[in-house]
């Protein structure tokens, strides 16, 4: 029982991080039908921003985790920059394939750019601690604060995002653009502004994910976003890419599969199971767990 609970919470923690990252993939895909391969690298940007700004925060007498605010801003700026400089011009002139290749190029560019910066370099950097150690005991297992905060913060962030997309004007505009771009234009919605907002939010979420991830695994390196991003992308596809609740669900599914397969089957086969789940879901429901076509009558 104790082991089961522990595994469950580890799964939820991992899943929360995947869900936050998956949201970035799914929101951008939903709005411009682009798989933003550089999204995983926004986690790297967030991670390094945290490493460099935590000392500033502590020097100012603030808690270390407050650095995430700066990381969110930096990531949002990088996301918006990538859209403005790389994706938008390519989208105007090229095809979906050109945009996809540009995304892969941006990913490699960001990773190599980071390595080329003298303060970063090729070797991993170690982050300090963000949350107090320890935790409290529930039903015979110890829940550490990092796990609790990760799950709680992700839940709050996702709830806020949901309210944003349902209740605010910009959120509704995002849903419209993702559903029908030309109809959205006819309503008076600026597609460019909406796409930029989507990039800013998606990249900002990656910064939050970066905080949660390195609070648990405090090593930051230039390719940190590769496997993490890939698994989050799998989560988005499993849940149904383009669908916001799908990314949340997919993230949790992948996190739980990872933790339970590690605990009960084999830790060396973890990634195998993640991709196995992807294959199974795609065979049964090609559009993902929540992906379905709304019955449109003509």
């Amino acid at each position: 029982m104790g082991e089961f609970l522990q595994t469950l919470f580890v799964g939820l923690r991992l899943g929360s991080v995947y869900a936050l990252i998956a949201l970035g993939y799914t929101m951008v895909y939903g709005i411009i039908r682009l798989i933003n391969f550089a999204h995983g690298d926004f986690i790297m940007v967030g991670g390094y921003t945290l490493i460099f700004t935590v000392p500033l925060m502590t020097a100012a007498g603030m808690p270390a985790w407050m650095a995430v605010i700066i990381a969110i801003l930096v990531c949002a700026l990088v996301g918006v920059g990538v859209e403005l400089i790389a994706y938008r011009p390519v989208r105007k002139k090229g095809t979906n394939m050109t945009a996809l290749i540009t995304a892969i190029a941006m990913s490699l560019f960001l990773e190599n750019l980071a390595q080329a910066i003298p303060a970063i370099g090729p070797n991993p950097m170690v982050a300090g601690t963000f949350f107090e150690s320890g935790g409290f005991r529930v039903a015979g297992v110890t829940l550490d604060y990092t796990t609790i905060y990760t799950i709680a913060v992700s839940a709050v962030v996702m709830l806020l995002l949901y309210v944003f997309t349902q209740k605010t004007k910009m959120g509704r505009a995002m849903r419209c653009v993702s559903e029908d771009k030309s109809a959205a234009i006819l309503m008076g919605i600026s597609v460019n502004k909406t796409v930029l907002t989507t990039f800013a939010i998606g990249s900002g979420l990656a910064a939050v994910a970066a905080l949660m991830y390195i609070a648990q695994y405090p090593s930051v390196y230039t390719t940190i976003g590769s496997l993490l991003g890939l698994k989050a992308f799998v989560a988005a596809v499993v849940g149904g890419i383009g669908i916001v609740p799908g990314a949340m669900l997919g993230g949790l599914v992948i996190g739980l599969v990872e933790s339970f397969s590690t605990a009960y089957i084999s830790s060396s086969l973890t990634d195998t199971f993640v991709f196995l789940i992807l294959i199974i879901v795609l065979l049964i429901k090609p559009a993902g767990i929540l992906g379905k076509n709304v019955g449109e009558k003509v």
């Binding site: 509704r172 849903r175 419209c176 559903e179 029908d180 030309s182 109809a183 234009i185 006819l186 309503m187 008076g188 919605i189 600026s190 597609v191 709304v294 449109e296 003509v298």
Partner: peptide, 24 residues
Amino acid sequence: IAPNKIIEIGLAHVPEGRHVFARM
């Protein structure tokens, strides 16, 4: 005028095929 500003000067377009937002 930018396409999304046309509505602001009082011209509304009901497109072919309706284009309602199906998930809303």
